[in-house]
């Protein structure tokens, strides 16, 4: 029970209701005419991702001095070398994402959602398969601070430069980023003094300063307040409008349903279902104990 997610009953309930009415309203105007699905922006072919875990690796434990010490240090290919083991977090996921699509990813804790997004963003090597992507990807994870000991200001500049903006472009966008994040004068404090909501707002503002082709959001919206949620949804629509693709991991099925037309359901690293949001979310809910309808 403890490890299963409660897709409902998350904190930001009202804003979601607000938003769905917002969305339908915003849907009408010619700004977002119903587009036919565009060209592929991402092709994911049988991707596997593994973590290496260094377990009880303390100096002085007897296992350290077994004859395999040499092997332990020099043989990096074997599957489990002493207390080094592997977590096979993503086990063969395939799909094609297209322009203008927003794709939700759901699944229990530890299903591999965050890991999959990192691999799709090109930030974590995958061990098998292939990921093909168009243009620039941006991942907004739960660990929002780039360098937590530095101030928000410095993180903004650093993030902008890392995205490939020139110093002049960063300068030009600086105020906009601070404004969008809504953190005010906290921008001159080190980021480890931020609440997690503030940090992810700033990070969101940094990463979308230059609209990416593929935007990936890993539970970063759930920490923001209603105002921020509204702003970030606007950004997501903007990405879709500019022929990009959005991936969204959220614990709230209401968020997923309101934002995504397509949903991938991951379990234990495997893709269980890939289809229209309502269907997949309903099927997923069926498997949650105490949450049947």
């Amino acid at each position: 029970m403890a490890e299963t997610e409660e897709p409902r009953g998350e904190e930001p309930k009202e804003p979601e209701v607000d938003f769905s009415s917002d969305l339908t309203a915003a849907d009408r105007p010619p700004k977002r005419k119903p587009k036919r699905l565009g060209r592929p922006t991402m092709v994911v072919d049988d991707v596997h991702v593994r973590y290496r875990v260094f377990g009880a690796r303390r100096m002085g434990t007897s296992s350290q001095f077994k004859p395999s010490l040499y092997k332990r240090l020099f043989d990096r290919t074997s599957k489990a070398v002493g207390s080094v083991s592997e977590v096979h977090a993503v086990r063969g996921v395939s799909f094609v994402a297209r322009q203008g699509e927003s794709i939700g990813i759901i699944g229990r804790n530890g299903a591999g959602k965050s890991t999959l997004l990192r691999a799709l963003a090109g930030l974590m090597p995958y061990s098998e398969g292939a990921v093909y992507a168009k243009g620039q990807t941006a991942l907004l994870g739960v660990n929002a601070a780039l360098l937590p000991r530095l101030t928000g200001e410095r993180n903004i500049v650093l993030g902008g430069l890392a995205l490939g903006l020139t110093p002049a472009q960063v300068q030009a966008k600086f105020d906009e980023i601070v404004e969008f994040s809504g953190i005010g004068e906290f921008v001159s404090l080190p980021m480890n003094a931020y609440s997690s909501g503030m940090a992810s707002r700033l990070r969101f503002a940094i990463s979308t300063a230059k609209i990416p082709d593929i935007l990936m959001i890993d539970e970063a919206l759930s920490t923001g307040d209603a105002e921020f949620q509204r702003k970030s949804r606007d950004k997501i629509l903007e990405v879709k409008d500019q022929a990009g693709t959005v991936f969204l991991v959220s614990h709230s099925s209401a968020t997923v349903l309101s934002m995504c037309e397509r949903v991938l359901w991951l379990d234990a690293g495997r893709l269980v279902m890939d289809g229209p949001a309502a269907e997949v979310v309903a099927a997923y809910k069926q498997t949650l104990p105490g949450n049947r309808r």
Partner: peptide, 21 residues
């Protein structure tokens, strides 16, 4: 479901780059 060859062909047709290469 695409085969590896089809996936690679689809990707190259739409000028996608391979991540992690």
């Amino acid at each position: 479901m695409l085969s590896h060859e089809e996936a690679a062909a689809l990707a190259s047709r739409h000028k996608l780059r391979r991540l992690g290469a």
